[in-house]
Computed example of a mutant assay.
Amino acid sequence: MTYPSWEEIRQGSITNTYSHMAPWYFPMIGPDEPTYMGRPHATTPADLVGADVVIIGAPYVAGWGEYMGVGADEWRAAPKRIRQQSIRYGSGYIQDFNLDVFEHLKVVDYGDADIPPECQTAPTAENVLRAQAAVEAKVNDAMAAGAVPIVIGQNSPCGSFAIAKVVSERTKGNVGCVSLDTHWDIAPLDKLTMDPRIAGSDAWKYKTYEFLDNFHQKNLVEIGERGMLEDREQVQRFLDLGTHFFPMWKIRSGLGIEGLVDQLHHAWDGTENVYCHWDMDVLGGAGPAPGDILGELAEPFGMSDYEVIRLAHECGKRGIAALSFICIPPGSPAIYRVLVYVIMYLCAGLAMRKAGLTNA
């Protein structure tokens, strides 16, 4: 699959998707990168004043070359490509809910975290921590403004632990978590650096509960894992500590999406804030593109695009502190549009909550 050029996307969006509308203006972050949904481009913390939602890119890939059999550049392109695909939608009006998100929420795009280039090519422990700190700085700015940061990342810790850490530091009470993933990411040690300070790809969730005192497994809702990928003792430890686990088998064999939505409350019960994390390899091959585009991350009977969008919407209605993404399947315009939907349907939930609307 060859991803289209920016000119093809721009012309196609104007000509095909909303030809009945006048072409709309969208601010540009770079020569081939518009802001998300054409929202205002915030370049300083002062620009975040009054914002409800702040979009942040974290185009970081951990490793010394390819990641899971796919070129690193393909993974890192996700924030830009999601922004590119977002401009095909001419407004914030979601017809499913008869609701214009932007009438209720001020959404701004804060660009990408300032990750030093050498952190992308030399993943030493010190460079990983520098990359993580760059994301933390952006997330801190957003939360200081009272906004919900939405971080479009690709690898840990920049698209996961960095966000959880800031939410933890800015929350006096306990923090719940809703996590969608194919993998638990609960190895005690990061395999890339073998450094106990690093909350890397296979260890970030373990490190979250090791390092952040107000995160507790009894408020973790873990969704989507399946198959023969995990160490039994590691999973059992999290279950013994109270994690509410909903594997795909349970969802498919009777619980269903409605039953799953009913179980989300565990993340909100007795907590002050909730952090949501969508690891998009959870799609497997059940989304609008084949699972093979994930390379070595592809696994059978993943979640559907509707399920990941619906869960984001339901979390938005309940209120969240932050949302982050990693492992966004590379190269498929349709998959990048799924991410646009996830963000917008989450925002629809936040808008309903802000406006006191209860009927989806």
Rank of each mutant, 00 (worst) to 15 (best):
E8P: 07
I9P: 13
G12R: 05
I14W: 05
Y18N: 15
H20M: 03
F26H: 12
G30L: 00
P31R: 15
T35A: 08
Y36V: 04
M37A: 07
H41Q: 14
H41R: 13
G50A: 08
A51Y: 01
V61G: 06
W64R: 12
G65C: 14
E66H: 01
G69Y: 04
G69W: 04
G69R: 02
W75I: 11
A77P: 11
G90F: 01
D100F: 01
V107C: 09
V108L: 00
D109C: 07
G111E: 07
A113F: 06
I115F: 01
P117K: 09
C119L: 03
C119I: 05
Q120C: 01
T124V: 10
L129A: 14
Q132V: 03
K138T: 10
K138N: 09
A142C: 02
A142S: 11
A144R: 03
V148D: 02
P149I: 00
I150V: 12
I152W: 10
N155F: 07
F161S: 00
F161A: 05
I163A: 10
V166P: 08
E169D: 12
T171G: 01
N174Q: 13
D181I: 03
A187C: 00
K191S: 11
D195L: 03
D195V: 11
R197N: 14
A199C: 13
K207Q: 13
T208P: 05
Y209M: 10
F211H: 04
D213G: 03
N214A: 05
L220F: 08
E225N: 13
R226K: 09
E230F: 14
Q234W: 15
V235P: 02
V235G: 01
G256V: 03
G259M: 05
G259H: 07
L260N: 05
D262Y: 04
D262C: 13
A267L: 04
T271F: 03
D279N: 12
P290C: 00
G291W: 06
G291D: 06
L294E: 03
A298T: 14
E299S: 12
F301E: 15
M303W: 08
E307W: 04
R310Q: 09
H313F: 13
E314G: 05
K317H: 00
R318P: 08
A322F: 11
C327N: 15
G331H: 06
A334W: 00
R337W: 06
V338F: 03
Y341G: 15
Y345I: 03
C347N: 11
L350M: 01
M352V: 00
K354R: 07
G356P: 09
N359F: 13
N359M: 10
A360C: 15
